[in-house]
Design a protein around this nucleic acid. Structure first.
Lengths: 137, 137
DNA sequence: CTGAATCCGACCAGATACTG
DNA sequence: CAGTATCTGGTCGGATTCAG
């Protein structure tokens, strides 16, 4: 997984050199603003397992408040990443599921999760080392 | 319900089914907390192009304050994603560069940037459609 | 059950001024 | 040039309450 690149001063991938727009961020922020919040990623991960109802999501994501779940699903729907299917039953049932675009995003998130797992220990170690040499003085 | 995931089996990727830990987020948050803030990603992207000095980063990332640049680089160093090389010259020069782990992260970010570019238009369109049907009434 | 609305605290981030 | 310290404000997120 480690970058096979040899030159530090060059790009790290061949497909997109991270900077085809020059100094611009090319809209990375657009995605990160969405992924940056506390819950969006977790909701996408849960929906990647299959369609879920409101209460199912609430129970599947410990700690999320109704407010944040509502806001998060609404934003995802707004951006075309999820669908909201209302079953006119009694009591009402609402089903959420990823759109094809949402599913493609979940692949990105999955890759990020892989990276996280692979490097979590190394990060924790580096952090401990830094804290030890700086904090203790 | 405790385990509704058993009968779903609709994962979107084969490598890692997004949920090998059951109900846990597997530390995705650890990465997202780092990537979530406004500047970390931009700094990593800039450093992916090559080593940079403090002032170079400041100029390359329009809008970043000295405070945030300082905090961001410090956090990246702490997590072992960047190195800080001090040249004992006059005036002092400090060079920042990605570590191998940082470079591997920049690959993830690059993939995310690719996704962003590919889907930005679709997101904007979906958002406009949603705003049009909901906001306008 | 599925939300929306409101209040409120916590944290992030910008501006500014100062130091080595 | 390369930071740090302090003040302040805007936004995110939680708890509660109300509604369809």
């Amino acid at each position: 997984m480690s970058g096979p690149n040899t030159a530090v001063g060059s790009q790290v991938n061949g497909g997109t050199p991270l900077g085809p727009c020059g100094d611009d961020d090319c809209g990375i922020r657009d995605v990160l603003d969405r992924l940056g919040d506390r819950w969006t990623v977790l909701v996408v991960v849960e929906l990647a397992k299959g369609s879920r109802r409101y209460g199912e999501l609430e129970r599947a994501i410990p700690g999320i408040s109704q407010r944040m779940l509502s806001l998060t699903t609404k934003r995802l729907c707004r951006d075309g990443l999820t669908e909201r299917i209302v079953h006119p039953t009694l009591p009402p049932q609402v089903e959420y599921r990823l759109t094809p675009m949402g599913r493609s995003l979940s692949v990105m998130i999955s890759a990020l999760a892989d990276w996280s797992r692979e490097n979590k220990a190394a990060i924790a170690e580096a952090r401990a080392r830094w804290d030890g040499s700086v904090g203790t003085a």
